[in-house]
Design a protein around this nucleic acid. Sequence first.
DNA 1: GCACTTTCATTGAATCTTCAAGAAGTGGAC
DNA 2: GTCCACTTCTTGAAGATTCAATGAAAGTGC
Lengths: 157, 157
Amino acid sequence: MKWLTEEEQASWRAYVHATTLLEDHLDRQLQRDAGMPHMYYALLTTLSDAPTRRMRMTELAQQTKITRSRLSHAVTRLEKNGWIAREDCPSDRRGQMAVLTDEGYAVLVRTAPGHVTAVRSAIFDRLTPEQVQQLGEISRIIAEGLQPEGADLPWLR
Amino acid sequence: MKWLTEEEQASWRAYVHATTLLEDHLDRQLQRDAGMPHMYYALLTTLSDAPTRRMRMTELAQQTKITRSRLSHAVTRLEKNGWIAREDCPSDRRGQMAVLTDEGYAVLVRTAPGHVTAVRSAIFDRLTPEQVQQLGEISRIIAEGLQPEGADLPWLR
DNA sequence: GCACTTTCATTGAATCTTCAAGAAGTGGAC
DNA sequence: GTCCACTTCTTGAAGATTCAATGAAAGTGC
């Protein structure tokens, strides 16, 4: 059993603090300005990047790294807001498509600038270009290690 | 209004993915092995580092970067587990101390190795020493920017 | 002492997440 | 075609978090 070195402990503590504060900060910013938490906002942006602004539930869950259950609940809520609609999947009768509505897209258009500003001022305005690159690389390594990668293993849970 | 560059976007996406997956992973590991989510575990470890294993509520909230409200609810739950006890603060009658019980300490002793292993294998075993240092530095910069620092400004909320 | 402001900590309601269970469809073996 | 294992998505209940409001004590100015 190998413990953490002093340096590792310090980095770990700093990481936990930073992620806690940042999540809190962005959730609050988006709750105030867009009426939803950050994860819900991420669902909308992910959909908006999809070819026809729609995606299978499972794929949306995979791309946003959340469980299907969580996604189901979230979509139910966003559907009530009129920002997402559900459609049957034409090729698989078990499937559902989540569709970004025009109204949902409008919310995104309206709130994206404020959100980008929040992200910028919390992170990118404070980091050097090298650090931005390092953050990306480190994040990719960590994320990679936590994903089954192995294609069709149970991807999460 | 300045948008994010390609590189910034990529780093941001990777960061969100990594933190989502990691939080999920550690919450699950600790829920399974210690019967509590990561944040609750962090409360116990923070207390265990304190001089007499006790701390004022506000200070505990500050050190763990959470709101007092969240802490109140968490301590209520951990009190039910018998892992934390509340004591009146001798010097300030408004105050409460959260005390790590022997039972709570025992849980920590029993589960710390497994948790450290989980953290190691998810992060530190995958990063070079330089990257560990970079992660710490980047995290400190981000955390610093999100804390009022300004001493007695409303520190959070 | 007295009014006023601030701080400490908690509470309840609404919201969000997790977990386990379950309904329905798919696809392969035979 | 039938059986069986697997995938897709949803659901309800339990637990966690947020937000606004509150009571009580401490500090401040006079």
